Simulated assay, not measured.
Amino acid sequence: MEHPQRRRRATVHDVAVEAGVSRGTVSRLLNGQRYVSDEARQAIEAAIVKVGFVPNRAARSLVMRRSQAIGLIVHEPHSLFVEDPNIGSILLGANETLSEADYQMATLIADSARDIARLGNYLSGGLIDGVIIVSAREGDAITRAVTRLDIPAAYVGHPRDIGDAAYVAIDNRSAAAAITTRLRETGRSRIGMIAAALDRDSGADRLAGFTDALGETFDPSLVESVPLYSYGDGQAGMRALLARHPDIDGVFASSDAVAAGAMDILQAAGRRIPADVGVVGFDDSSWAMRCDPPLSTVRQPAGDLGRAAAAAVLRQVEGAPAPGGGTVLDCPVVWRSSA
């Protein structure tokens, strides 16, 4: 049986012959260099289509010393990566911006010390041109590796030890204070908080905002700390608060997933929402509309955070200096019937 002959792959030489230009002119255009006339560019682009030329990305990367890839590092457990819709929205927003710039996104999850050590080796290999870092903690080994290797980087959030590195964030403290104040204005007098993720800036700032809003009436025994922004931690935190303070009449949960877990525990205990207990969350994620009643919350623009972080990294990859500061996006309160 005869096998059909495999079609020869078109080369830069084929494009140059078809376009009537030199190979050097074709190479300059493919490598993004200047000094290619509009007439030559149009002829080359038409020739590429006609001969079916596909650029060799690996070879181009060697010439340009770029991989055309940006890493998005999520420092969260695998379970939260799947459960938290904010992470997905950040990822999609970043990918949109990178795709428009013809960059590939490599998603990297750091769940353990072994993951972090592996990531350090990966980052040093020159396989990516820059990184977007989500959920970094102060003293994070990933931050140390990025700083040591001098990789273009942007953080989603604002850990206090990143110096003048680029970051994109929201004002967690002011937003937490605003929604706590509004909850208090509904007549609640025993307001507690399920405070998640206090090892990172977002969690610590939301607790600070809650404290600001309550002022002299703040009672630390009405705060229950939990490790993660997760539904299960919301359940655990609410059980602990109810055991200590059965008279609680308001709850600020530091994420929508935490609020959903808290609401299920309250309702299982016979507490009506909002008649007996008002509940508010943070994020305005898909969790908020799964709740019954729908959750009052803070709208976090997760997709915009991802897009802005990707843009900040690309500017650095293209040679612009690190901006020496951050971008803070608006995050309004969204009031629904849970409070």
Rank of each mutant, 00 (worst) to 15 (best):
residue 113 A to K: 12
residue 82 V to Y: 10
residue 221 S to M: 08
residue 216 E to A: 15
residue 261 G to F: 04
residue 145 A to G: 05
residue 188 R to F: 10
residue 13 H to C: 06
residue 323 P to I: 08
residue 41 R to N: 10
residue 185 E to P: 01
residue 135 S to T: 12
residue 55 P to Y: 11
residue 298 V to I: 15
residue 278 G to K: 04
residue 112 S to V: 08
residue 130 G to M: 11
residue 125 G to Q: 14
residue 105 M to G: 06
residue 32 G to N: 11
residue 60 R to I: 08
residue 268 A to S: 14
residue 339 A to M: 12
residue 321 P to S: 09
residue 261 G to H: 04
residue 154 A to R: 03
residue 48 I to F: 10
residue 163 G to R: 10
residue 207 L to G: 00
residue 77 P to E: 11
residue 190 R to A: 13
residue 156 V to Y: 01
residue 105 M to I: 12
residue 116 I to T: 13
residue 264 D to A: 13
residue 76 E to G: 00
residue 60 R to V: 09
residue 303 G to F: 05
residue 270 G to H: 06
residue 214 L to F: 08
residue 253 A to Y: 04
residue 3 H to S: 14
residue 57 R to C: 00
residue 239 R to W: 10
residue 333 V to I: 11
residue 63 V to Y: 04
residue 319 G to F: 02
residue 22 S to V: 10
residue 213 A to Q: 06
residue 8 R to Q: 14
residue 91 L to Y: 05
residue 86 N to K: 02
residue 9 R to D: 10
residue 255 S to R: 07
residue 309 A to I: 05
residue 165 A to K: 05
residue 147 T to L: 11
residue 38 D to S: 14
residue 320 A to N: 05
residue 34 R to P: 15
residue 125 G to E: 14
residue 328 V to Y: 07
residue 48 I to S: 08
residue 15 V to Y: 07
residue 329 L to A: 04
residue 201 D to E: 13
